[in-house]
């Protein structure tokens, strides 16, 4: 029962994991995008949360870009080329962030193996 259960949760995990990356299409895209951007002149606030001039100008820029028909990814790309990777809260997957993204998952699998070893391999012989 538990093994079946683990299997199911594993499948669910993968489905949801990829589902997360889908972007829901709604009108409040500016809000959504600006929540993922760091306000560069503030201390630890997102562009969405901040009312600084920088944040306001970035929001105006996103709106213009959206009206001009740019996609969300294009906007992120544009902002990254202008201000550097520092501006987005979601680090891109590249050679610098390989460890950042994969280490937790690796540790999770490693921990799982340790548990399997403890429970099954070290099992007392009866």
């Amino acid at each position: 029962m538990i093994i079946k259960f683990l299997k199911i949760s594993f499948i669910v995990f993968f489905i949801t994991f990829f589902n997360l990356n889908n972007v829901s299409a709604n009108n409040q895209k500016v809000d959504e995008i600006s929540k993922n951007l760091r306000c560069l002149i503030c201390q630890g606030q997102s562009v969405y949360d901040s009312n600084s001039e920088f944040a306001l100008s970035v929001r105006a820029l996103i709106l213009n870009k959206l009206k001009a028909g740019n996609s969300e990814d294009e906007i992120y790309l544009f902002l990254k080329s202008k201000y550097g990777d520092w501006i987005v809260y979601e680090p891109e997957f590249n050679k610098y962030t390989l460890v950042l993204w994969l280490l937790p998952l690796f540790l999770f699998i490693f921990g799982g193996l340790l548990i399997v070893r403890k429970v099954f391999i070290n099992r007392p012989k009866k």
């Binding site: 995990f13 949801t16 994991f17 997360l20 990356n21 929540k35 993922n36 760091r38 997102s46 990777d85 520092w86 501006i87 987005v88 809260y89 979601e90 680090p91 610098y96 962030t97 950042l100 937790p104 998952l105």
Partner: peptide, 14 residues
């Protein structure tokens, strides 16, 4: 780089 809510949500919630 910045590591913010999207990172944590994606790795923790699933």
């Amino acid at each position: 780089i910045s590591v913010g809510p999207p990172y944590f949500n994606q790795l923790i919630i699933p």
